[in-house]
Design a protein around this nucleic acid. Structure first.
Lengths: 221, 221
DNA sequence: AATTAATTTCACCAATTATTCACAAAAAAC
DNA sequence: GTTTTTTGTGAATAATTGGTGAAATTAATT
């Protein structure tokens, strides 16, 4: 988790940084809107904590100036009497507000809550089944399972869409690409192999007759 | 968007309801934790607005009692001097707090913000009958019911058009496709099977003589 | 070039699902 | 009350679908 804290008061940045680092978040700071904008464009952050009132470039202007594709989950810090700007703020994709003065505990609770919704974890775990998307590894009982690339891709896609029935066409276009014109049944064969590799978890890949397949996190009846 | 408002003060419920309905949200009310819990278990809502201080069963107890799979995005209403542990609240899946007295405008802004990041529901629920369109599953009393693809399609289409009579021709063209030239009566057979699978809910698929069929919300005479 | 691994195709089989049809039951028309 | 029309139902049959093993093809590695 990478955080960018933007506030002109050093003390506030310090407090937030201290608490955030206690949560193992990686924190960077900016003391004005202009340098924050530069940092946001140059680097990738997961969360932005942004003061509204700042000299040079205020928070709203920063958000308006920021290219859309660089927008990230944002928590606004604002003085209590800036209440009426709130409605305006929500239209800019702001996720939460904290009014100054705030208790660090409250801010951290909101950061955590936002992080929980935002952070798309790199690891999926279901009992003793563990998929690490970044490392491309699958483990059952700490034991590494060897999947072929296609098998891993299929499993990943199904897990990213867990509890949703995925059609064969969807799998073909997402994993093989739109230009692929092979046989549907190829998927079945890969599913067969995937299931056999997943051992006791094979029932989590359910056949949805007439549609395709679905990964489910419930135990099946 | 279906909202459930839980508060023991009628005036507060009224105000929220009025504003919410102006946003085209469908609103239900509960005046205590116990009846809220019942409603949450019986039906499906997209968002919960919950007062903490209530007689009989307070908001936190309600959230703790609620089965995990029934948890939905939640906004807490609390009095300014109620110092609850907010961190604990966030663990219970609470998304936001609004302190009383609040301005309806602020609450609506928060509801809207939360609604924006909450995906619209994919589940239709009628008492203990639950259809998950994405997962392609039907449950009665949490028990999975196996429908064939055609049965599921027919049920889905009728529910999407609930309380509207659907002709056989409409069903044929929507579910079988325009190029189908089979017998009308095939539908009857599928309806027969569908009804038998729906058990105690079979009467919700009504015959509309001379036209076709209709799925109805209400108990039949 | 040889070997190994991964992917794809294919055909068979079992299971499931869809369709048709004949007759019974119900509702509407006469 | 009888006839006609429409719908419900059970059973037989047809069609489709998915699981599977093996073979063929392609790609990667040594």
């Amino acid at each position: 988790m990478n955080l960018l804290i933007v506030d002109d008061e050093e003390k506030i940045r310090e407090v937030i940084k201290e608490y955030s680092e206690a949560e193992n978040y990686i924190v960077e700071e900016a003391d004005n809107g202009k340098s924050a904008l530069d940092k946001l464009i140059q680097n990738h952050y997961d969360l932005l904590i942004l003061d509204i009132m700042m000299p040079e470039m205020d928070g709203y202007t920063l958000l308006k100036t920021l290219p859309k594709e660089k927008r990230i989950p944002t928590i606004i810090l604002s003085a209590r009497d800036e209440v009426y700007d709130k409605l305006q703020g929500f239209d800019l994709g702001i996720d939460d507000y904290v009014t100054k003065p705030f208790s660090p505990k409250e801010l951290m609770a909101r950061i955590k809550a936002l992080a929980k919704r935002t952070k798309h974890s790199n690891i999926y775990q279901l009992n003793t089944l563990e998929i690490n998307f970044a490392a491309h590894t699958v483990k059952i009982n700490q034991q590494k399972i060897n999947l072929t690339p296609k098998e891993f891709d299929i499993l990943s896609y199904l897990i990213e869409n867990k509890n949703i029935a995925i059609s064969r066409e969807q799998l073909l276009s997402k994993i093989w690409g739109y230009s692929y014109f092979g046989d549907d049944r190829t998927i079945d064969t890969h599913i067969k192999m995937l299931r056999s590799h997943l051992k006791q978890y094979k029932n989590h890949i359910e056949t949805v007759r007439g549609i395709g397949y679905k990964f489910t996190d419930e135990e099946n009846q």
